[in-house]
Design a protein around this nucleic acid. Structure first.
Lengths: 230, 230
DNA sequence: ACGCTGTATCTTGTATACAAAATTCAGAAA
DNA sequence: TTTCTGAATTTTGTATACAAGATACAGCGT
């Protein structure tokens, strides 16, 4: 018999709930997070909320405002750009390591993920496209057999999900994205580590460029409201 | 007038205290962390301890053991290697961005840091060498103007400090290290981004290789005790 | 003596309590 | 009417309380 999995504790559940609310835009940037109110909504005491907030603060989803608790953070343009830059090199690393010693798994399970991605794009549901995009990259992280990469980028994917959801819901270039995914997977299966790294990195840098364009465009067309930190 | 800095709260102090105890080896891997005992030692209630533990768990310094709280984690060889691999690409990124738009600051403040490092090595105190090593790399992170990099690697530096302290206290190749640091700084000052990236990356990869050798050597010569997770 | 079982003790996770700091707002003064 | 002041109310950070699960151990049977 295997040790049974303990059900995730309240702190974890509260953390996910708040984080997802932020990423879904239900909690707007700049909005103050009232512990009692959250506790009320989630039907738990303030204790797990406080603990979850420690994590959310550490990962940049909320930020302190003096001695008045925390508010939902607004990632600055520099931070968003920074996320992508970091993701680019880490995705590159993951792809390289995957090509070095994950070829078998890549060949067996990769095509299925590609197909699911293309399906999701045909379905036209943005949320589904984003999910399969994340699935693909998580798959590469797993292939890399480097346990550190996924842990490091996981929170950032949520941040990106948040930003992408609000910025490029309209024109998400799925065709290009999944062609690039396919190329990355091919390089991994072929065991061509330098090529896999280069492609994965350029893939993320492409996303970075597109996001930067979008943001610049949005910034010039309309000043955002409710923003304390530019 | 500027907003005055609020003194760091108990959670932060407790977090640092426990983390430093772990990195200094006062708390051995596998040792169970008793909340009440820690609270007693630090003269606070259990509450800040619990919150600090959430963070420590998230950053891999401690790990859960079923429903019996947490124990000090033992980074596996794969994780240690993973730290270095991640650091290599992130250091590369930081150096590249620093060369792109941090030349002025690098020229002004860099030499001082190099000198301090050489001094520390002459003094022969291991702790000082390690500190100035960390200082140099933090300097590069700051130069990069990418706020994400430093946040991401900060916990890892503590992990590395821990590992390095226990593994290569004896022969720390300071001469080579600071020559490489100097070369990296030169490339940044010259604004040669690709070169800066390559050098920084190779610098970290060199450290990774050395660490891997040491670990393999240590593993064959003597089985470690007190280790639950290999 | 050895192993099993049930109970006492300890430890954790969560809830509640409380004091200090921040915010709000009514009322006084200009 | 507007602005300032200070007391009432919120809200937070930390401490204490409590219930459920984990550990230790004594007492029983073999």
């Amino acid at each position: 018999m295997k040790p049974i999995k303990v059900p995730p504790d309240l702190v974890q559940l509260v953390y996910s709930a708040i984080r997802d609310s932020i990423c879904a835009g239900e909690l707007a940037p700049g909005e103050r997070l009232n512990q009692e109110a959250v506790a009320e909504r989630l039907q738990v005491s303030r204790q797990p909320i406080v603990q979850a907030i420690v994590l959310l603060k550490n990962q940049g989803f909320v930020k302190e405002i003096g001695r008045r608790g925390v508010e939902v953070a607004q990632p600055s343009a520099a931070e968003i750009s920074g996320f992508y830059a970091v993701r680019a090199v880490l995705d590159g690393l993951a792809a390289r390591e995957a090509a070095d010693h994950g070829q078998q798994h890549a060949r067996r399970q990769g095509p299925e993920i590609l197909q699911a991605g293309r399906e999701a794009c045909r379905s036209g549901l943005f949320i589904g496209m984003l999910q399969s995009d994340m699935d693909f990259h998580q798959f590469i992280y797993r292939l890399s057999a480097n346990p550190v990469i996924e842990n490091m980028v996981a929170p950032h994917w949520h941040q990106l999900r948040r930003v992408m959801g609000s910025v490029l819901r309209s024109d998400y270039p799925h065709a290009r994205i999944w062609n690039e995914h396919e190329a990355i997977l091919s390089a991994i299966i072929a065991g061509d580590a330098p090529q896999a790294e280069r492609l994965a990195r350029e893939h993320a840098e492409g996303a970075q460029t597109m996001m930067a364009d979008k943001l610049r465009c949005a910034a010039t067309s309309a000043e955002p409201k409710n923003v304390q930190n530019g």
